[in-house]
């Protein structure tokens, strides 16, 4: 009797505490880092327009895939955002539900899954983001080769590629940028040499650390650096390396068994709409849809800067993702 009463009391207490949240509509997007691709601004805009909240989520691409896989039988997320290769890999694991959002036809065929398991929302390029004030008079590096110079010892970071997709794109693509072959040795030789100058492989987003100068040189998506430069007015230069760079398309997907499936579809449609695409562009990630960016357009680097950009096939990247991450752990991070 007593136990039943306490259980009822407990239930009533919980029920009394939840209604405020229960009435609020929510879409859960894994990998929704406010300081990456302006997701903070995008979700704020969505809340303003629709009243639906998309809470921030600090998982990187690989962490997102791991979480979805773990929750496969009991999904918690509605939508996911990835670096394209990881999204491709996750789709292969059967973690996504097919959906073709509004505007689907405008997306180039190579940047979407034919069945709607993932599609690109915007794209960036790997760049060298330099806090020039933190360099204290040292020359600003202009190429990947420059980064190997001893004067940059302890000044460079790129996020842990086993967690964050952009870094994975860099670690995978550098081989091709440097003209390496299928064995990827050239890329790994470079990463191993670069390791001597690396201060840290952060596992959390490093945007603020670069802004403060704690990390003077960050290899990440160009858009994040451009946002530091134009929006945060920081002394930041975004360098497209002389050797070329790696294209980094970013994709979204509907999670299989999404708890708020219908809301998620509305949200995914909206993400390809004009207001979302423009808001994403405020972080200088190039929108996939053809929207008028106005004066923002002038602040993007000219297309010529990306002449030498490579775009490794997503299917190959996805197929080799686990092996490349493991090799990186073994040969680069584990190289003690």
């Amino acid at each position: 009797m007593k136990i039943r009463n306490s259980l009822i009391a407990l239930f009533l207490t919980c029920a009394a505490l939840t209604p405020a949240r229960a009435q609020e509509k929510v879409v859960v997007q894994y990998d929704c880092i406010p300081n990456y691709a302006n997701w903070g601004g995008v979700t704020a805009q969505y809340l303003k327009e629709t009243g639906v909240r998309v809470p921030p989520d600090m998982k990187g691409s690989s962490a997102t895939m791991a979480a979805l896989e773990q929750e496969k039988t009991n999904p918690q997320a509605d939508a996911a955002y990835y670096s394209a290769a990881i999204g491709y890999q996750a789709a292969g694991k059967g973690l996504h539900a097919p959906y073709k959002p509004k505007g689907w036809d405008a997306i180039p065929a190579e940047l979407r899954d034919p069945d709607g398991l993932w599609w690109t929302v915007h794209s960036a390029h790997v760049a060298i983001i330099v806090n020039t004030a933190a360099l204290k008079g040292k020359p600003v590096p202009t190429s990947f080769a420059d980064l190997l110079k001893p004067e940059y010892k302890g000044l460079i970071a790129y996020d842990d590629p086993t967690i964050h997709g952009t870094s994975f794109t860099f670690v995978y693509g550098i081989n091709q940028v440097l003209g390496g072959g299928a064995d990827m040795n050239k890329g790994f030789d470079y990463l191993k040499a670069l390791d001597a100058n690396i201060v840290n492989y952060p596992r959390e987003n490093s945007y603020n650390d670069v802004l403060r100068g704690e990390i003077p040189i960050w290899i990440n998506a160009d858009g994040n650096g451009l946002k530091m430069k134009w929006t945060d007015k920081a002394p930041v230069d975004v360098i497209i390396p002389a050797e070329g760079t790696v294209a980094a398309p970013l994709v979204m997907a509907l999670v299989k068994g999404a708890p708020h499936g219908d809301e998620a579809k509305k949200y995914l449609d909206w993400c390809l709409g004009e207001s979302a695409q423009k808001t994403m562009a405020e972080s200088f990630f190039r929108p996939i849809m053809n929207v008028n960016l106005g004066e923002l357009a002038a602040k993007f680097p000219p297309a010529s800067a990306y002449r030498k950009a490579v775009a490794p096939p997503l299917n190959e990247m996805a197929a080799n993702a686990d092996a490349v991450k493991a090799r990186w752990v073994k040969e680069v991070k584990g190289n003690r």
Partner: peptide, 23 residues
């Protein structure tokens, strides 16, 4: 160690990475 370690990995971090990165 999640925040500060670069080369020094400790076992709890390995647990985290085995799940996050390699499933």
């Amino acid at each position: 160690v999640l925040i500060v370690a670069k080369r020094f990995s400790l076992l709890p971090l390995e647990v985290f990475e085995q799940i996050i990165a390699f499933n």
